[in-house]
Simulated assay, not measured.
Amino acid sequence: MADTLKITLNRGLSGQTKNRRACVRGLGLKRRQHQVVVADTPENRGMINKVADMISVERA
């Protein structure tokens, strides 16, 4: 089984650019304090790096 990451959205999406909103939505996050578990893949890591200041990440 692949490694997984638990991601929490700490900041809201208002005032963010379309690209940053798309990355957050692509990770499956919908609102503040929402948590999702995603696979640790290069695609997900790229989206995480683009919005690193808005989320917190830990191993699941």
Rank of each mutant, 00 (worst) to 15 (best):
M47L: 15
L5G: 06
G46D: 12
A39V: 12
S14G: 08
V57G: 07
P42R: 05
A60L: 07
K18R: 11
Q35I: 07
R32D: 15
E58P: 03
H34R: 02
R45K: 13
L27Q: 12
V24P: 06
A52W: 08
N49M: 04
L27I: 14
I55F: 02
R11Y: 01
E58A: 08
I55M: 02
V38G: 08
N10V: 09
R32A: 10
L9Y: 00
L29P: 03
N44S: 13
I55T: 03
V51W: 05
R21F: 11
M47F: 11
L13P: 02
I55G: 03
Q35S: 13
I55S: 05
A52N: 14
A39E: 14
L9N: 04
A2E: 02
C23P: 00
G26F: 14
N19S: 15
Q16M: 03
Q35R: 15
N19P: 02
R21Y: 01
V57D: 01
V24L: 15
E43P: 03
I7F: 03
N44A: 04
V37M: 08
G46Q: 11
R21W: 08
N19W: 03
M47C: 13
K6F: 01
D40E: 12
K30L: 10
T4A: 08
G28T: 09
R59E: 00
R11A: 12
K50E: 07
Q33Y: 12
T17P: 05
L5N: 01
Q16F: 06
Q35D: 14
R32T: 13
R45H: 12
L5I: 11
P42V: 12
G28H: 09
C23E: 04
H34M: 11
M1S: 09
D3L: 04
S56W: 03
